[in-house]
Amino acid sequence: MNSPVLHALRCVGSTGLARLASFTGLTESDVESELIDLAVIGHVTHVFGGWSLTEAGRAADAAATEGELEPAGTRPALVAAFDDFLVLNPELLDLCTAWQMRSADGVTTVNDHSDAVYDARVLALFADLHERAVVVIAALAAAVPRFGRYEPRLTTALTRAQAGELACLADSVDSFHTIWAELHEDLLATLGIARWGG
């Protein structure tokens, strides 16, 4: 059984309703109702003020994502698009860093966002990277459709930043960077690639 909420917990780690709703596109009440069903069958548990997976829940989601890759050609297509994602990943992190820090007189300092010209330049580069990311996400979604959800989420974060919500690029829990990191984790989880050393 594929449960978007179960999979969200595998990608995001322990968290609350708001982030699960953002990840899945479901309402918080729908998320909560599914969590209760999952808790009844022992797949999730509520600890430290957040929901997290049990070992059984992790195994169930791993089986579900393995099933998604079974149709012929799915895995190679996803791997190829993942390689394209990995090309963009360091550039995105460079951009987040440039948004947070900037170099002045050889000193790296916190970007206090007082220089509109600099901010506009970084924002334009985010927009440029986003255009290329949309192409990669389309390729991911062609292999496994649920990856398509990342596109509107990233677009929303970028649009909000362009409208002046500066934290939406790298400094909030629903920032472009956070959503990107969730996509990265989702790809690793789906492809069964273990993170190094643990």
Binding site: L93, C96, T97, A170, D171, S175, H177
Partner: peptide, 10 residues
């Protein structure tokens, strides 16, 4: 420019 660095600075 790792995820960890970006999040820590945020």
């Amino acid at each position: 420019a790792s995820h960890a660095a970006v999040v820590a600075r945020s």
